[in-house]
Design a protein around this nucleic acid. Sequence first.
DNA 1: CATTTGACGCCAA
DNA 2: TTTGGCGCCAAAT
Length: 86
Amino acid sequence: MKAKSFTKRVYDVVRKIPKGKTLTYGQVAAAMGSPGAARAVGNALNKNRNKDVPCHRVIRSDGSVGGFAWGTPKKIAILKKEGAIK
DNA sequence: CATTTGACGCCAA
DNA sequence: TTTGGCGCCAAAT
């Protein structure tokens, strides 16, 4: 297995998120083996803003959408459309 | 190479 | 209950 960069692992996990499902940054960080790296996870998505990954399905632990490089309201609209949030 | 930033998380007041 | 501050990690500048 390749020692992928931290960011690559973030994409790999987020990319596996099914439609209508949402994960928290902390859960994604823990899923990759780095619990507590919630900031680093959001940072990877923000700095890279890779559209190949459903980054809009990654939200905060509070249930808030958090932020979005393309526009937070845009992210909310997608999640609401997906039925992931109320 | 060192410092700052940043889409977070949790505790205290 | 809501707001503020501190702590953590990785990437960008």
